[in-house]
Simulated scan of single mutants.
Amino acid sequence: MSDNQYHYDVKMSCSGCSNAINRVLSRKSEISKFDISLENQAVDVTTSLPYDDVLNIIKKTGKEVLGGKVVV
Rank of each mutant, 00 (worst) to 15 (best):
residue 35 D to K: 14
residue 28 K to V: 11
residue 58 I to D: 10
residue 69 K to Q: 12
residue 21 I to R: 04
residue 24 V to N: 02
residue 25 L to W: 05
residue 1 M to A: 14
residue 56 N to S: 11
residue 26 S to F: 01
residue 26 S to I: 01
residue 39 E to F: 13
residue 58 I to T: 10
residue 67 G to Y: 03
residue 72 V to R: 13
residue 23 R to K: 15
residue 45 V to G: 10
residue 70 V to L: 12
residue 40 N to F: 04
residue 18 S to E: 04
residue 44 D to W: 01
residue 27 R to A: 12
residue 38 L to K: 06
residue 11 K to M: 09
residue 24 V to M: 03
residue 20 A to M: 03
residue 3 D to L: 13
residue 32 S to V: 13
residue 50 P to I: 03
residue 55 L to N: 13
residue 6 Y to F: 15
residue 63 K to Y: 00
residue 58 I to E: 09
residue 62 G to W: 02
residue 49 L to I: 05
residue 33 K to M: 05
residue 72 V to L: 10
residue 6 Y to N: 09
residue 52 D to S: 12
residue 58 I to H: 09
residue 64 E to S: 12
residue 5 Q to E: 15
residue 64 E to L: 11
residue 31 I to T: 05
residue 18 S to P: 02
residue 26 S to Q: 11
residue 67 G to I: 02
residue 19 N to W: 02
residue 37 S to E: 02
residue 11 K to G: 00
residue 3 D to G: 11
residue 46 T to I: 11
residue 33 K to Y: 09
residue 51 Y to T: 05
residue 1 M to H: 11
residue 27 R to K: 15
residue 55 L to V: 04
residue 30 E to S: 14
residue 29 S to W: 00
residue 43 V to M: 06
residue 52 D to G: 01
residue 59 K to H: 00
residue 70 V to I: 15
residue 50 P to T: 01
residue 22 N to W: 01
residue 14 C to E: 08
residue 14 C to L: 06
residue 15 S to R: 09
residue 7 H to A: 11
residue 68 G to K: 09
residue 47 T to V: 05
residue 58 I to F: 04
residue 49 L to E: 11
residue 4 N to M: 10
residue 59 K to L: 09
residue 22 N to T: 04
residue 48 S to A: 12
residue 25 L to V: 07
residue 69 K to E: 14
residue 38 L to Q: 07
residue 10 V to W: 01
residue 47 T to H: 07
